[in-house]
Design a protein around this nucleic acid. Structure first.
Lengths: 334, 334
DNA sequence: AACATTAAGTTAAGCGCTTAATCAATTTAA
DNA sequence: TTAAATTGATTAAGCGCTTAACTTAATGTT
């Protein structure tokens, strides 16, 4: 059997309270006893049960992370960054891929509730916001990562998508482009915002983006191919394409190549996210980088704060600026 | 405060034992009381604490998954598959990226011990096997996923890497290739085995692979580039390259293109893993697919079995056959 | 009718830990 | 020298749940 606090106490000739105190560095303990106890712990290889500790009303030191799909490189990187920052502060992460399914969303939330996680980070566009509102009512610290919902007053940490779109547009303009197409990620608020920012930049330059140059796609290979073909088939082909995610951009580049359209010679491409796809693409994909690591840092920080001081201030919105990563997929027309 | 079993019991006018029984579907309860209790649970929105349940000696219904880096697409897919199968059986997953660092390995194992996870899946080549052996001594169900270690007698679920390498070689041979180069993943047993299988297939055809055509690399963009260049600089260039991972293969393809070497016209490429990189590459990358989902299914199944019947049979080794996925990166020379 | 079964609950102990309250032994203050 | 304060440790209650053992009432058996 796994040794318990009693085993340590008995062997060290002290009470379990004393052991608890040396484990947690609380209360008054003489140096002598402390070292004695520590010695015994080593000796019998004692490892305190955080399950029992959690029951005593303390934290579980666990947070749930809901992503749509961990197999998507962007979310994998997000999860990785969150995991890192959580670990630094002693927290573990329970991974939940919702697959954009309402059922899984609910199932996982129920699980997290039962497990008494100390907080939940939501990085998936919810299917059913009601369920999440319920969580707020229950006073579970919540944080929205990289997503946003107007009617929701929890903490939010996200990339400034509008600004990201603007950045992309501005960059293409600066490089002399005047004809654009956009592949927007369907059904996602962030996709909408990126488009909005992009349009804004064009407007500032007195250019209007016609609807026929905006096509929708999910961030999946098959759908991205369709979207790419659609754009390549346009009779007055644009000189540049802004893709809502690197994956879509990468697929577009391949389709273009297959159609004997060279990048960036014939058409320039700019992506979003700065995932491994951008790095691996040929030519290297110029893209808008989300500050994943920093987002994660803020997210964990903010969440821990609302764990530590419950019902303190209402939801902050932290919006970090994206950054343009210049590679070789955009041609300078000037 | 979160409602407890007492609140339900009081409101339903029964003892907490009764409530516990309806929650767990154990013991004898009349239909009448059962529905009454269920009603009350709904009413006050009761969700049993699995923390408390775990303390009573039952499971925590949590398993730890150690991967080197969740941001690596292969492991992301592995994690995803494991998560799915775990969830189906009621288990949650704690995500642990070790980053190949001994310190993180130990840190995470300690965490998992404290958290009393019911079992651990190790999908990372360990830095220090001693630590893992210790776990075995403690009777923590352990399972090695996609890795292997001769001196280790836990359960193992892995792809048959030798066979995978053999398949790749066989396929190239069948397509008329006689000159090969291999990019092997450094320091990984699986890499070694893939090479071994590959060599074996050549041997069966009476061909020997000279060492100068074997280069080593990690599965990272920068290193893969170097390896690719090294091969492209060979004076008697091979007609085909077997890359240890899809990422390496994809990078090789890009480097080749940059050097004006067309694929598969001038040189054929075959990868390993069948990750998104293979799908996205242009031309589509022919590769050896690991049966990720099936591996995950077996892994979870096997692990749960040793959780349910502790110290039952010693470590099984389940080795699933990889499969060749034909795309367009290999030219038929016949 | 007398007893054995069975069905439906209840009681109470215990899981491994934290912590407020308490106590005994020293040390300090006056 | 005696009271007050400090230090170092112990006691015991309780966290929310499970479960073996027990009770009570209703049924069944001969």
């Amino acid at each position: 059997m796994k040794p318990t606090i009693y085993d340590v106490a008995k062997k060290a000739g002290v009470s379990i309270a004393t052991v608890s105190k040396v484990v947690n560095n609380t209360g008054r303990i003489s140096e002598k006893t402390r070292s004695r106890v520590k010695e015994v712990m080593k000796e019998i290889d004692y490892s305190p049960s955080s399950v029992a500790a959690a029951l005593t009303g303390k934290r579980t030191f666990t947070i749930g992370v809901l992503v749509p799909d961990i197999a998507n490189p962007f979310f994998a990187e997000v999860a990785r960054a969150l995991e890192n920052h959580a670990r630094m502060t002693g927290y573990a992460i329970i991974l939940c891929s919702t697959d954009y399914q309402r059922e899984r969303e609910q199932d996982y939330l129920e699980l997290l509730l039962k497990k008494q996680v100390d907080g939940i980070i939501i990085a998936t566009e919810a299917r059913d916001w009601k369920v999440f509102k319920k969580l707020l009512d229950k006073n579970i610290p919540l944080l929205m990562f990289s997503i946003d919902h107007p009617s929701f007053s929890s903490h939010v940490v996200t990339t400034d998508d509008i600004r990201g779109g603007y950045l992309a547009g501005r960059y293409l303009l600066d490089n002399g482009h005047r004809n654009f197409a956009v592949i927007v990620e369907e059904n996602r608020e962030s996709g909408r915002l990126r488009l909005e920012g992009f349009k804004q930049s064009l407007m500032d330059a007195g250019i209007e983006l016609s609807d026929s140059f905006v096509v929708f796609s999910k961030s999946r290979v098959e759908e991205a191919k369709k979207a790419a073909k659609q754009i390549l088939a346009l009779n007055n082909r644009p000189t540049s394409v802004f893709a809502a995610t690197d994956l879509i951009a990468a697929v577009f580049m391949n389709e273009a190549r297959k159609a004997n359209i060279s990048i960036p010679e014939d058409i320039s491409v700019i992506g979003f996210d700065n995932t491994i796809h951008a790095e691996i693409a040929d030519p290297g994909l110029t893209t808008i980088a989300q500050p994943t690591d920093e987002l994660a840092r803020y997210a964990i920080h903010q969440l821990l704060e609302s764990i530590e001081k419950p019902n303190s201030l209402p939801g902050h919105r932290i919006m970090l600026a994206p950054e343009l990563i210049e590679r070789d997929s955009v041609k300078n027309l000037n």
